[in-house]
Design a protein around this nucleic acid. Structure first.
Lengths: 153, 153
DNA sequence: CGCAATTAAATTGCACACAATCTAAATAAG
DNA sequence: CTTATTTAGATTGTGTGCAATTTAATTGCG
């Protein structure tokens, strides 16, 4: 049986992706624990830091959802937790009362410094080859871009 | 800044993996809905079908956890749901009262027939290149194997 | 043999994901 | 202008993931 049509677990790209994704999140966990962040919260902060330098005013729940492919059902409670931790501020937009604007607190801005060394540390510990990782990132990205349109992104 | 140390979301392999994994699960969802399975339940069934032909007696919660890298906290409720749906039977092992043996019901065995066409359908809809997918699967698998030992697998 | 350490599941609690529904606000159409 | 539609968030409910704890059974060791 050719692997494309096999039902063997090890032949499933979907399982490898699922397992690898969870494994990477677990690898990040000890480091993120020290910052008091979960992995999805970390991704939100990455986007907020990115926007903080480029275009802080674009930061809304909607825009964050588009960027991370998450809906308000996931983001609303997550953002409330980040707000309670004092990392960001949520407030209704005055120009469009439907939208909720997000901005980093000073504490939120400062947290970035502690995140910078994380990635290098993880790559170092894993002993992975940088070029390989880069290539893999491009390929997984390619897969994502082929699947996303099927799902309306 | 070289991508290896960038904090840009798009430079993060971890995010690509996370997003791609969720996207693939969503792509499976409409098809799995018709079978009444969630994606993790589908993975459990794949393993059970595999073992059914090779070594049915090895099927325990522990073995399933090792194969899928999931613990009893996730599997116990999931397996109870599969049992309630009549797809499998859970029963304490007589030789080792700590272990719970799992076996497919007739209905569980038969469900496999309806799963066989799913993968071909998904690949077809995605318009993905088979050789590319195969290579990607191998590479993601390679990443997984490098990370897994760091996490005690 | 007898007890400590280990092991397999189950349970509890928390934080996602995501579908479905609801509310309020903004926009489009007539 | 007024109603219909669309849009942004919030809410509710279900099902994972996973850490931590608990229970019961088994194994290891002296």
């Amino acid at each position: 049986m050719n692997p494309e049509l096999s039902l063997q677990l090890d032949d499933q790209l979907c399982f490898k992706l699922y397992a690898a994704s969870r494994a990477v999140v677990r690898a990040y966990k000890p480091m993120l624990d020290e910052l008091g962040l979960t992995y999805p919260q970390y991704l939100v902060m990455l986007v907020m830091w990115e926007w903080h330098q480029a275009a802080p005013e674009q930061a809304t729940v909607k825009a964050l959802g588009t960027r991370l492919m998450l809906d308000s059902g996931t983001l609303t409670p997550l953002l409330k937790r980040l707000e309670q931790q004092g990392l960001l501020i949520r407030q209704r937009s005055t120009s469009d009362e439907r939208a909720v604007n997000l901005q980093l607190s000073n504490q939120g801005v400062q947290l970035r410094e502690r995140v910078i060394p994380l990635k290098a540390q993880l790559i170092c510990e894993s002993g992975a080859d940088l070029n390989e990782l880069d290539e893999l990132r491009a390929q997984v990205g390619g897969l994502l871009e082929r699947i996303a349109p099927m799902l309306g992104y």
